[in-house]
Simulated assay, not measured.
Amino acid sequence: MADGNGTFRLAAVADLHCRQDQHGRFRELVKIVNGEAEGLLLAGDLTDHGTIDEAKTLAEAFALLRVPCAAVLGNHDFEGGVVKDVVRILGESSIEVLDGDHAVFDKRVGIAGVKGFAGGFERAMLQAFGEPIIKAFVQEAVNEALKLEAALGQLDTPMKIVMTHYAPIAETCQGEEAEIRPYLGTSRLSAPCEAFGACAVFHGHAHHGKTDGRTPKGIPVYNVAMPLLRKLWDKRFRVFDVWEGGCTPVTPGPELVVTTH
């Protein structure tokens, strides 16, 4: 828990991919988070196929959570076509789903959240040129970045955190097949983080990526996809100390191995 020096202890995980038949799978996770953290972030792909039954299964476990929880949706959460119902069910279990808005923990930590989108990174970022369908694809990424900018603009907390599902930098996608990396995120998401001085960014989606990276201006970025954390450290979530202007992993320590597949 917090040590009284102005830090906030935050747990974070993504890509739970909860299925209907997994009653009880996340109860132990919730129990440990209750004892180790002051708040929890869930960075997308909360369900496996975006169904009402999957959302109910997850909500059942998280009803036991005693710390504030904010989440964003991931691509899997849209598969069932019942997003509004998924958000409602999770909300009834005190999981606050963000989509271009924000949550505040303990009056100190503001979390701006969006799903994000794909499109590639840096000089290889897809541009809005040519066929209308390409322009529409790029516009979706632009819209998500604008929503993130609006959410950050609403925050006046001393600590500002960004949560997305798609990656805002290429570095945390290293380890994924090169051919799919443009579909795992876009650099368009990193600009608002830097403009508004975020302490850290958390995302998922890149199951085979790298856990730690930084934006071009040095903001720490953490890939907290559960499959990656379990592969590297046999952990289901990661814990961080956040303070005004920074963020440090508590455990596990700095990543030593970059895995590929």
Rank of each mutant, 00 (worst) to 15 (best):
L46F: 05
G113S: 11
S94T: 10
V82M: 12
D85I: 09
D48K: 02
G74E: 02
A61Q: 00
F117G: 10
G81L: 06
I134H: 07
E38W: 02
K135T: 12
G113I: 10
A103R: 06
T57Q: 00
G80T: 09
K115Q: 15
I95L: 05
I111N: 06
A59R: 01
F137H: 00
T47Y: 03
A63I: 00
D99L: 12
D48W: 08
I52T: 15
G120P: 06
R123E: 14
E122S: 12
I133N: 09
L90E: 11
A128C: 04
I134T: 11
T51I: 04
L40I: 05
L41H: 02
K107T: 12
P68Q: 08
L126F: 07
V138W: 06
E92Q: 14
V86H: 10
R123S: 15
V87F: 09
L41Q: 05
G119A: 07
I89Q: 08
F62Y: 09
G113R: 08
E131L: 15
I133A: 14
G130P: 06
L126Q: 03
F129Y: 10
I111H: 05
P132Q: 02
G116M: 10
E122N: 13
E38V: 05
L126V: 04
E60C: 09
D45G: 02
F129G: 10
P132W: 00
F121G: 12
N75K: 03
L64C: 13
G50Y: 08
L40R: 02
P68E: 07
V97F: 04
T57E: 01
V72T: 06
A103E: 07
K107A: 14
R123Y: 09
F62A: 07
L65W: 01
A112S: 09
L73N: 04
D45M: 02
G130V: 07
I95P: 00
E122H: 13
S94C: 10
D99A: 14
K84M: 11
Q127N: 11
H49P: 09
I95Y: 04
F78A: 05
D45W: 02
A128Q: 08
A124M: 14
F137I: 05
L41P: 04
D85E: 13
R108M: 14
L42Y: 06
F137A: 03
E79T: 12
G44I: 00
G113L: 08
G44H: 01
P132T: 01
F137R: 00
K56T: 05
S93W: 05
G80I: 13
V104L: 10
Q139A: 07
A63R: 08
L126M: 07
E54T: 12
F105G: 10
G39V: 01
I134G: 04
D106L: 15
L64P: 03
H49Y: 14
A103C: 14
F62T: 02
L40P: 00
R88L: 14
L98A: 11
P68C: 12
V82E: 14
A118D: 12
T57Y: 00
V86L: 15
L42T: 07
I134Q: 11
A37M: 03
V114K: 03
V138Y: 01
A70H: 00
P68D: 08
A55I: 00
Q139V: 03
I52H: 08
R108T: 15
K56R: 01
V97I: 09
L126C: 00
A63H: 04
F137G: 00
A103L: 07
